[in-house]
Design a protein around this nucleic acid. Sequence first.
DNA 1: GTGAAAGCGCTAACAT
DNA 2: ATGTTAGCGCTTTCAC
Lengths: 349, 349
Amino acid sequence: MTTMKQIAQRVGVSVSTVSLVLNGRDGGRVKPHIAQRVRDAAEEMGYQPNALARSLRTNRTHIVGFISVEVATTPYAGRIIQGAQDALSELGYLLITVSGDDDKAVEGGIHALKRYGVDGFLYSAMSNRVVDVPESLCSFPLVLVDATDAENRFPSIEPDEFRIGYDATTRLIEAGCEHIAYIGCLQPMIAQTGRAEGYRQALADHGMRFDERLQCDVLNNGRALRAVEELYDAQRPDGFFCFNDARAWYVYETAARRGLTVGRDVSVVGVDNHRVFAETFSPQLTTIELPHYEMGYWAANRLVAAIEDHGVDEAQWPQMTAPLPPLDATSPAKVHCTLIEKESVRGDR
Amino acid sequence: MTTMKQIAQRVGVSVSTVSLVLNGRDGGRVKPHIAQRVRDAAEEMGYQPNALARSLRTNRTHIVGFISVEVATTPYAGRIIQGAQDALSELGYLLITVSGDDDKAVEGGIHALKRYGVDGFLYSAMSNRVVDVPESLCSFPLVLVDATDAENRFPSIEPDEFRIGYDATTRLIEAGCEHIAYIGCLQPMIAQTGRAEGYRQALADHGMRFDERLQCDVLNNGRALRAVEELYDAQRPDGFFCFNDARAWYVYETAARRGLTVGRDVSVVGVDNHRVFAETFSPQLTTIELPHYEMGYWAANRLVAAIEDHGVDEAQWPQMTAPLPPLDATSPAKVHCTLIEKESVRGDR
DNA sequence: GTGAAAGCGCTAACAT
DNA sequence: ATGTTAGCGCTTTCAC
């Protein structure tokens, strides 16, 4: 590892000069040709700044922590992290991920990150929920991903659930469906609520009556399949909007058992929570991919913006949430989800 | 942030004494009661060692880098990472994850990690493959996860693919199946090769002839479903061993279209690559979960063992791979995969 | 324009 | 048994 000292010796200047030049902090004060010689030497000797030493001095690590409770093993966690990672690497930051089954493990991780002096945190719930932010994070720069602060103190990035429901339903209507069912999720979540509202609004906007017998919220268990089969047999819907891929599978099974072909006899639009559709059902399915990657990406951007605007000064962070620069169209707080056409929802019409 | 200096002042000793006491490096040399006063003060003042400063001094960060090319967005990545994370946190280490679509992005990440002075690397391919280890990692402590070094220079942790095939097939035989098909993967991979061999060996060991018409290796596309349907119609197998969940879905669809019920009319054992089975097919399926978590866990353990045995001295690492302590039964290089019974493969026999 | 010097917080060899 | 000292590699003020 080459150090500034070695460069200084080689060129015959002092370390301070080297530091100034290499950091572009000399406002033309260092003579151009000597500055050039410093740069050349650095290049030649393969100089790499020692991040540790720099951080110790500047009190800025350019590292941010990604905290997620319980479910970082969930399939989509990776995409959020990837998005955050990409954004951060563009900005010259690094990401350290911490997750654990219980709060205690996570708390430990947060502690460790603090000892390393991370500049800020991303906090993620892995499915759009209202969460309690751990006390230990509150005095740090913090942005929530796919989650909302119960006390609404921190900026957050989440998917536009309403539009998911609205767009999916509209797509089915445009495909000619006249009895559209919604196979939802029985647990109360922002995602379920938002999507269901979007579904109803889309129906209303197209002059269709909402019929509660067409909405079927299920848990992920044995009863679910029966519920969907009963719904089908009783109501004979011609289109299904599915909360996620697990729910979509019930529709597929129901259809297959009745000799129906999805994409011809019945239309399905599903939210691809697990990126499974792409591998299995996809040929016959129109999917909506959750913008996990984008959420991670924008959250990281927002966090860094905050850090660089306000510094990492612990004490003043909690109050600064408000003056955060409002995100524009290119970096929304509610991220839009795109509908992906694998093949027509109603193949041969 | 309390520093050692502050503690020293408070207690009226020098920083070195504080350092010695707090690091337990005084072999009883510091007088017990003064040592106690130091510890009390540290406690009271909420002292947290500054990891940056320590690392700068000791040249050890207690951070390891997790490198994965392309597919860290893959669903199982999270489980490997979680395993590594848990092991590392037990050992007082932190994990920084780097992944990117292309080699260039990854290279950049590796660079950044080196600047922070990570102690070593884990390198993962996200599906058991033979890989070329990036040159930039070769002079560091390194362990491969779910991958094998093409030149066989580094320790690696991978699933026991042969046993997966063997156990799955045996399970089907024990359930009474007599014509067992293997729905495999057309790309050449360690996983495909190993599982197929296990399948054949299990057949042989139970006195059953391997019939190549019962092995059907497919890509994940439209033709796959047709291939499985043709296999079924021509050979009428009564049991299926499926390479992964995507392949299993073709079997489910085939069965559903023929009015057959999995678990009664036909038996299926599948490898749960994507943790989808658990959510969708599971009630009727016997699955084999890949030990992603365990692989991450053991790989991290092995890496730390190597680091602590041999230090992070760049120059000498490449040669030290051989003398690594052989892993014992509790930390195998080939990790055993367990068969998980959701319900009998052949429910009512 | 450039260099000397101080110091970030910690460790460890060397004095006392 | 404890303190002194000298850094680790870098940034930054202040003198020259």
